[in-house]
């Protein structure tokens, strides 16, 4: 499917982003911009700061310096209501973080009802639509603990999509899954890509990055050290550091 990537104004942009935890400087001035409809894969060794970068983008972590712009507004401005910003950004976590005390259906309706004030019937209707889209319509009354990892992550994707976000952030969505379940989650993500969703995906799945991403960003020691469309990124891996890293990863 043909996808259009707008170059006019970035949907989401980080400028000079820095973050430290105590003595440890995790992000050292990151500049990253994501256009509407663009899919950016963020890769790099563990501890490189890629997850922190993603968590800064929706302000789960407050950056120490730098700015984040989202849909034309500077969201690192302390005046900004972070809750309004976050409801426009979906996030999917490595460990799913489903709400275990709520049914699958209720997981997907909670924020619709409490944040968007969607009437229950309407919220449930949307939740059922999304659940059948990720292939879990039959599980709506189940509790998360009875699901497999792959199913949990698909529910988490549906939960995030229920808010009709402008951008989806994925934080290693397949890293905690058994190998046979990785594919079902990647398939659900692939469908989003085809629909033109703007996405930032921190991942170790090089196959997904190669197939689905418009751009691959390599983060190491808190800096972006390489950035290129996948075909170029993987063929002429432009630095020793990137080559070293890719050599260690299968696929």
């Amino acid at each position: 499917m043909e996808r259009s990537v707008s170059a006019v104004q970035p949907m989401l942009q980080a400028r000079g982003l820095s973050k430290r935890f105590g003595e440890h400087e995790v992000l050292k001035g990151i500049d990253l911009s994501i256009a509407r409809g663009e899919v950016v894969a963020i890769i790099g060794p563990s501890g490189s700061g890629k997850s922190t970068l993603l968590r800064c983008l929706n302000l789960l972590e407050r950056p120490d310096a730098g700015e984040i712009w989202f849909e034309g507004a500077c969201i690192t401005d302390p005046q900004v209501d972070v809750n309004r910003v976050r409801m426009r950004m979906g996030m999917v976590f490595q460990l799913f973080n489903l709400f275990p005390h709520l049914t699958v259906l209720h997981n997907v309706t909670l924020a619709q009802e409490r944040v968007l004030r969607t009437p229950r019937a309407q919220a449930q209707e949307r939740a059922r639509e999304l659940l059948s889209k990720v292939g879990l319509a039959a599980k709506e009354q189940a509790y998360p603990n009875s699901l497999s990892g792959g199913q949990k992550q698909r529910v988490a994707i549906a939960r995030a999509l229920a808010m009709k976000p402008a951008v989806m952030l994925f934080d290693e969505p397949t890293s905690a899954l058994d190998p046979e379940m990785v594919q079902e989650v990647l398939t659900a993500m692939g469908e989003l890509v085809d629909e033109g969703m703007t996405m930032a995906v921190v991942t170790h799945e090089m196959g997904f990055a190669r197939r689905a991403a418009d751009r691959v960003v390599f983060v190491d020691e808190g800096r972006i050290v390489a950035e290129a469309p996948p075909e170029r990124f993987f063929s002429d891996a432009n630095s020793d550091r990137v080559r070293q890293f890719l050599a260690k990863i299968p696929g």
Binding site: R86, G90, F99
Partner: peptide, 25 residues
């Protein structure tokens, strides 16, 4: 911690996250 993070990432306020996600558990 992930429970609060998931709730906040959906736009729930800190109080809502406490009320609907943390306290029931």
């Amino acid at each position: 911690r992930g429970q609060v993070e998931a709730a906040r990432s959906l736009g729930l306020t800190a109080a809502q996250a406490m009320r609907y996600v943390v306290l029931p558990q």
